[in-house]
Amino acid sequence: MGPLIPNGVIGGGWDFVIAILLGVAFGFILEASGFSSSRNLAGVFYGYNFVVLRVFFTALIVAMVGLLYFDYVGWISLSQIFILPTFLGPMIVGGVIMGVGFVLGGFCPGTSFTGIAIGKLDAVFFAIGLYVGIFGFSLAFPLFENFFTSGNLGNVTLTDLTGIPAPVFAVIFTVVALAAFWGTMFIEKRVRKNMKQYKF
């Protein structure tokens, strides 16, 4: 049956409607998970709050395992879904920049808007910086355009690269994620014991 739009189940005009609904749901979940607080978000780097890791890892393994089951029962065809192309070097550099920005600013782009939604001043400043950064990136783009498009591996998946079937990765990721959930719970307890005061 799925994907719905490529298979003509619903018209192409629906993609904006779906995007808005998904955006609202995403924002709600981020806020409800406590992602509008930069202390919570930065906590993952200091070891006192791993909610970021837990929420994103949960979303990842649920979506991953869910898609495999959906594909099996025929609700979505995994061969038809869009796979983001991989640019190995640029993605690693981009990830490092994102992580540094995350620990410096206390937000990632999406969470800064949930912070604005509940009136956080630091989130407003982060979003201003975000737009300045986008502007700067656009102006400076010709300088690193070659690097930006280098190392293109195409629309590959781990299964394409290694030949190992997708369910094996699903199990490995799930086990790692669950181990991380339990492991970080103990780390949190230890670190928080030594903290004098912590308000979420």
Partner: peptide, 21 residues
């Protein structure tokens, strides 16, 4: 609840190994 959800997720993930598509 955490224990229950952990076990459920693990069972579902291992279950994907037996899906033959």
């Amino acid at each position: 609840n955490y224990i229950l959800l952990t076990v459920l997720m693990l069972v579902l993930a291992v279950g994907t190994l037996f899906l033959t598509t």
